[in-house]
C-alpha cells in the first residue's frame, strides 16, 4: 500500500480552500463554454452550482480531475496544480477526489460487489478478499442497499444505481466529492433520499463537495453555499435565501418553481 505523503500548498491549510479555480476557459470548437470562471471550495462545505442544461456544469467539474483539458486558467485542487500534473500525481489526485457521474456510470458487465471492489483493487491494490468484503459491505450499508450486492446494474432502479454509484465513489474515502446532477431524473422521494445521503456523508466523513444541479429543492437541501453558472461564468453567489431574492431574470427562473 502507498504511504506517500500528499503535497499540499501552504495556502490550503490556512484559508481552508480545497479547490481554487481562477480564470478558467474552455471552448469546444467555436463554442466558448467556460469564460474566465473563478470559484473556491472551502473545507467541509457543500457548494451547489446551479445552471441550466448545457451551461457547462459538467465540463467544469470534469476539468477538476482532467477528464477534460481546459484551454487556460488555474486549477488548484488539494494543493495539486491540476493542469500540470504528471501521470503519477494525477493518480494521487484522483484517489482523493470522488466523481459521481450523472448517469451513475456503473459497469454493466459487473455485479454491484464487483463494481465496488474495482476501485479498491485497482487504486489501492487490495486483494485480500476479507478486507474487500468488509469495505464493500460498509459502503453498501452507508447507502442502505446491502441486499443488492450480487445484482447487476440493469436489475436496479435509477435511484438505486445513483446510490451505488455514490457508494463506489465514497469507498475510497475521498476528501472531495463531485456530484454531477445527483437527483436528475429521479422522483421527489428518491431525490430526497439522495440529498440526505449527501448531507450525511459531509458530516460523517468531513468531505467537501461540489454539487451540480438544476433541481432547486436539491440545492436547498444540500447546499451551504450556492453559485449560479450563467453564460459560462459564475454570476451570483450566496445562501439559498439570499439567492432567492435575486433580481436577475434568468436566475429568478430557477426559484420560481
Amino acid at each position: 500500500m502507498k504511504t506517500e505523503t500528499i503535497p499540499t500548498l501552504p495556502s490550503v491549510g490556512e484559508s481552508e480552500t480545497v479547490v481554487k479555480i481562477r480564470n478558467l476557459n474552455k471552448s469546444f470548437g467555436e463554442r466558448a463554454v467556460l469564460k474566465d470562471l473563478s470559484i473556491d471550495l472551502r473545507q467541509g462545505e457543500n457548494l451547489v452550482v446551479i445552471g441550466k442544461s448545457g451551461a457547462g456544469k459538467s465540463v467544469l467539474i470534469k476539468c477538476l480531475v482532467r477528464l477534460i483539458e481546459p484551454d487556460s486558467g488555474e486549477i488548484n485542487v488539494l494543493g495539486f496544480d491540476v493542469p500540470r500534473l504528471d501521470v503519477k500525481q494525477l493518480r494521487e489526485l484522483r484517489l482523493q477526489v470522488g466523481f459521481s457521474f450523472q448517469g451513475s456510470a456503473l459497469y454493466d458487465s459487473m455485479t454491484v460487489r464487483e463494481n465496488l471492489e474495482f476501485p479498491l483493487r485497482r487504486n489501492l491494490g487490495i486483494t485480500n478478499q476479507e478486507e474487500l468484503n468488509q469495505a464493500v459491505e460498509e459502503s453498501l450499508a452507508d447507502v442502505g442497499l446491502s441486499h443488492t450486492i450480487e445484482q447487476y446494474p440493469t436489475e436496479l432502479s435509477g435511484g438505486m444505481k445513483k446510490r451505488i454509484g455514490i457508494a463506489r465513489t465514497l469507498i475510497l474515502k475521498p476528501k472531495i466529492m463531485l456530484y454531477d446532477e445527483p437527483t436528475a431524473g429521479l422522483d421527489p422521494i428518491t431525490s430526497g433520499e439522495i440529498n440526505d445521503l449527501i448531507v450525511k456523508f459531509r458530516d460523517k466523513y468531513n468531505t467537501s463537495s461540489i454539487i451540480i444541479t438544476h433541481d432547486i429543492s436539491s440545492a436547498r437541501a444540500t447546499g451551504d453555499r450556492i453559485v449560479a453558472l450563467l453564460e459560462g461564468t459564475i454570476k451570483m453567489e450566496g445562501t439559498f435565501d439570499e439567492m432567492k431574492l435575486t433580481k436577475d431574470p434568468e436566475l429568478a427562473q430557477f426559484f420560481n418553481y
Binding site: K62, V65, L67, R91, R94, L95, V97, F99, F101, Q102, G103, A105, L106, Y107, D108, F118, P119, R122, N123, R168, L172
Partner: peptide
C-alpha cells in the same frame, strides 16, 4: 460505445485504471 456514452470509461479513468 455504450461504455463511452454512459460515462463508464470516464469512471474507469478516474478510478485509477
Amino acid at each position: 460505445g455504450s461504455m463511452r456514452v454512459s460515462e463508464q470509461i470516464d469512471a474507469m479513468e478516474v478510478s485509477g485504471v
